[in-house]
Write a protein that binds this DNA or RNA. Structure first.
Length: 539
DNA sequence: TGTTCGCGCGCC
DNA sequence: AAAGGGCGCGCGAACA
């Protein structure tokens, strides 16, 4: 496979170099050159940092097919070697490779404030040579570390997809959003005031206490209930629900609506929705690998927690549809596959895994669900313990898999996902901790974390693989665009007449992802797919 | 006045 | 119904 190092300049040009030697070529129109190489042979592009580089390339009209992100890969390799958190930029990686002291970090704030003529001219040729060398070193390390080469490829594909999703944006109707908000909260207030419905609820809370109480202040609420003769330990909703007091109902409604208003209200839309396509687009900044388990995070935009109540504002362009697909019960299926538990794998061949397991748990689907979730999350309620005992007996391999991960964590060791993403090390204070209740709590916390890490991390890898396959097929058949991703769920925006084919392609991508991670497994990871005009209609 | 922290809840 | 794992976000409160 041809690899090509690519370094953009500040304008339209840049530098290219065939990986593993050869001269660096200066090109005046980088987007055009990218297109020529893509047409000629689908190279794998070697890029310093897609999050920095790719958005501008996309705006210039370039699209990279496959790539190797040096920064993302370096982070994965550092983690694998127990050097979590060391700098992963190419310059730092290069210094490590050569055994040199690490270069001083370049604060972004400084580069951002420099005028163009104060900044030293970029030496793209030197950077291309450096990237080439770091890349070669990374390839050697990936090969000797299990399935890490697959992980690096999947992570890099994620980098491409994240930038493309922000570029395309999620189709969004500000008019629909405003209508939803107005219906729930009242019309948009002037700055500094609450919307009408919220203010009414706040007034009702104060009236119920007989004095002014700010419903946004947990302290004031605690004090108010205390003087009403109902002391409570927190203002969590399930604590409040136990109380018989006139303030509870308006308070709970206030909390629910206030969250929509502050987190996904008008100012949220002001900030994150902009024109695009045939309408408007929500453009969050995704952070690939932003969660230690490999899940994505967002840097603003709150896109990974769009409340169900607001999803009606996510609407396809005219003549288009949103194909919304989520992997059903992804994490327990992943556990079945990675542990190789035959009994659990048989159940995971069914569409409803929990239903298939219910026979084992006295015919109760909910009990099967609690048993599995407790095994994966470390739940320890008395009820869960009973169900876990059943699970241990009937699905010993699956049980042992997560149990081993928990024990490793409790002993301060590292655990890895299926492809090799590695959890952060235990803190130094964890290792030097003595006995006592605080220490044992920290040990249990660490065990729950590593127990979940192996499953959540592998599920994140499966989702990356799914998206990588899906992205390629969407492109090959010109079907539409990936516009959203949330842990185990994707949205494709496409012309209405292509929605059926998109659904087939999503299902095929899911099968390909399962086969890539777990060749020959009997486990199925089916996709639940709906083609809708509005995201709110998907579930 | 600006920054950090804990809380509570939205999502998976 | 809540509880176990992972997050982001905005708030009030505390602190510098």
């Amino acid at each position: 496979m041809v690899r090509m190092v690519i370094v953009p300049d500040e304008g339209d040009g840049g530098w290219l170099r065939a990986a593993d030697g050869g001269p660096v070529t200066r090109v005046p129109d980088l987007a055009a050159s990218v297109g020529e190489f893509e047409d000629a042979g689908e190279p794998r592009w070697v890029v310093a940092d897609l999050a920095q580089v790719y958005p501008r390339l996309l705006r210039r009209g370039a699209r990279l097919g496959r790539c190797h992100d040096v920064t993302l890969t370096e982070s994965l390799l550092l983690g694998y070697d127990g050097r979590y958190g060391e700098p992963s930029a190419p310059a730092a990686a290069h210094a490590r490779l050569r055994g040199l002291p690490p270069p001083p970090p370049v604060p972004e704030a400084v580069t951002g404030t420099l005028f163009d003529d104060e900044r030293p001219p970029k030496d793209g040729a030197a950077e291309a040579v450096l990237l080439d060398e770091v890349h070669a070193g990374q390839m050697a390390r990936l090969e000797s570390r299990g399935r890490m080469a697959t992980l690096a490829a999947a992570e890099s594909a994620g980098g491409l997809i994240a930038a493309e999703m922000t570029f395309h944006g999620l189709p969004f109707s500000r008019e629909a959003h405003d209508a939803i908000l107005t219906g729930m909260l009242g019309s948009r207030p002037v700055k500094g005031l609450r919307p009408r419905h919220l203010q009414e609820l706040a007034d009702r809370v104060s009236a119920a206490f007989g004095r002014p109480v700010n419903p946004d202040s947990p302290q004031q609420i605690l004090a108010a209930f205390k003087s009403a003769g109902m002391p409570i330990e927190s203002t969590r909703s399930w604590v409040l629900k136990r109380l018989d007091h006139a303030a509870v109902e308006p308070l709970l409604e206030y909390k629910e609506l206030a969250r929509i208003w502050t987190a996904h209200g008008w100012s949220w839309a002001d900030q994150w929705v902009s024109p695009g396509g045939d309408g408007q687009r929500l453009r969050p900044e995704y952070v690939v690998g932003g969660v230690v388990s490999g899940r994505w995070a967002t840097d603003g935009g709150g896109a990974l927690q769009i409340p169900k109540a607001v999803r009606g504002a996510v609407r396809a362009d005219p003549g288009h549809l949103l194909v919304v697909a989520d992997a059903a019960q992804l994490e327990p299926r992943v556990l079945a596959a990675m542990s190789g538990d035959a009994g659990m794998a048989r159940a995971a061949g069914e569409i409803d895994l929990y239903e298939a397991l219910s026979g084992t748990f006295g015919g109760k689907r909910d009990d099967a669900k609690i048993a599995l979730l407790s095994a994966m999350y470390g739940g320890g309620s008395p009820e869960a313990m009973t169900l876990l005992a059943v699970m241990r007996q009937r699905f010993p391999a699956a049980y042992a898999y997560v149990e081993a991960a928990a024990q490793a964590g409790e002993r301060g060791r590292l655990v890895r996902s299926w492809l090799g993403r590695t959890c952060p090390p235990a803190s130094s204070s964890f290792k030097s901790m003595g006995a006592g209740p605080e220490a044992s709590r920290a040990v249990r916390d660490r065990g729950r974390f590593t127990r979940n890490f192996v499953v959540q991390g592998t599920a994140a890898e499966w989702a990356l693989a799914l998206m990588a396959f899906l992205r390629n097929r969407l492109r090959e058949e010109s079907l539409g665009e990936l516009v959203f991703f949330q842990h185990d769920e994707v949205i494709v925006h496409c012309p209405a007449e292509r929605a059926g084919r998109v659904g087939e392609v999503i299902a095929a991508a899911g099968r390909a992802a399962t086969e890539l991670l777990f060749p020959g497994t009997p486990v199925r990871i089916p996709m639940h797919t709906a083609a809708v005009e509005s995201y709110a209609d998907a579930k």
